[in-house]
């Protein structure tokens, strides 16, 4: 299980003479069982990338803890924690920034293999070939190539091979397909799913696209984030077809009708504003209150906590109005 418990991440932003702290991720707890899929959905700036980095051990949380199979990796590093942290690997959205332009793909793949002593040196080339084959690349064609000599899709696969090189148990994919053409997105997603299932990997898929989230995480769970907080989470199909939080509803109803499907969301729910408020001036009450079409007086008073939407399901939403909005909105 890959999990984080009440993680908080604050950054200092310099404003002239003084620095101001902004909270990019605020008390988020999520968990991904081994070999399961969790999708984190939200607009840019919602903290999903920061959360992903903390899960992958790339960024230490300001508060809270991250655990991988029971080992807390966010605490001071020991050999054991180092090993546990290696079990979670991050797949970046931009393959160009991940691959060193002066290394061939073979050299790039060899580095972690040597550094973490994954295979003896004599087996290096075989292991590289295995990894490339695993990600659907022809090792002979790409092993000695530089990143700029590969096509976009090949680079994406090479990045995936790189992440797999240390034999992780979990992958955190951050907008892994947002730079891929719509026509071939599903091909990349299929690859992720195939590798996850053959290698028994847990998958954290970060995206702003519910369509992608549903395709990848159909049997898994969805976490919807807004301004650093989880506003709704639950089984994928449940959240998409019965969204409880107004923000989830607004997001879903902004999806073009063609993609959403004809009989989906007959009632358009429009936010009061299309501007995301700055993290520096967060509302006191519910973070979504200033944009929420259903907001009441009470919403600006106190911040709602995540709570179950009804006894039967495992769906949770952080909204004072859950009772009021969960009925009658979805047709």
């Amino acid at each position: 299980m890959l999990a984080c418990d009440q993680v908080v991440k604050r950054f200092a932003i310099r404003r002239g003479w003084r620095a101001q702290l902004v909270t990019a991720v605020n008390q988020v707890s999520i968990s991904v069982p081994a070999a399961q899929v969790l999708c984190i959905v939200g607009e840019s700036g919602c903290g999903k990338t920061t959360l992903g980095k903390m899960l992958a051990g790339v960024l230490p949380p300001t508060e809270g803890s991250v655990t991988v199979d029971g080992v807390e990796v966010s605490a001071r590093r020991t050999a054991e924690r180092e090993r546990a942290a290696l079990k979670v690997q991050l797949v970046h959205q931009d393959p160009f920034s991940t691959l060193n332009p002066v290394h061939t793909i073979g050299e790039e793949l060899s580095l972690p293999l040597i550094h973490h002593r994954i295979v003896p040196k004599s087996h290096l080339r075989e292991e590289c070939e295995r990894l490339l084959t695993l990600t659907g690349l022809n090792p002979k064609a790409v092993l000695d190539k530089y990143p700029h000599e590969l096509s976009g899709g090949q680079r994406q696969r090479a990045v995936l091979a790189l992440a797999l090189s240390v034999r992780p148990r979990y992958l955190v994919a951050d907008e892994a397909v947002s730079m891929v053409d719509v026509s071939s997105r599903l091909i990349m997603l299929d690859l992720f799913l195939e590798i996850a299932s053959t290698q028994d990997l847990g998958l954290v898929f970060i995206t702003h696209d519910f369509g992608v989230a549903r395709y990848v995480g159909y049997e898994g769970t969805i976490t919807v984030m807004y301004l650093g907080r989880v506003v709704e989470q639950g089984p994928t199909e449940q959240v998409i077809h019965h969204p409880c939080h107004p923000y989830t509803q607004v997001l879903l109803s902004s999806i073009p009708a063609l993609q959403a499907g004809r009989d989906f969301m007959p009632q358009k729910i429009v936010p009061r504003s299309f501007e995301v408020p700055s993290l520096e001036h967060l509302p006191v009450g519910c973070v979504f209150e200033p944009r929420c079409p259903f907001a009441t007086e009470a919403c600006s008073q106190s911040a709602p906590q995540l709570r179950a939407t009804d006894k039967a399901s495992s769906q949770q939403a952080a909204c004072l109005l859950v009772e009021a909005t969960s009925t009658g909105v979805v047709g």
Partner: peptide, 19 residues
Amino acid sequence: NALPRLTGDPRAAKGLTGA
């Protein structure tokens, strides 16, 4: 057909291979 949908069987959508 390459567009992931929010309704129906998600696996009905298929990506386009090749370039």
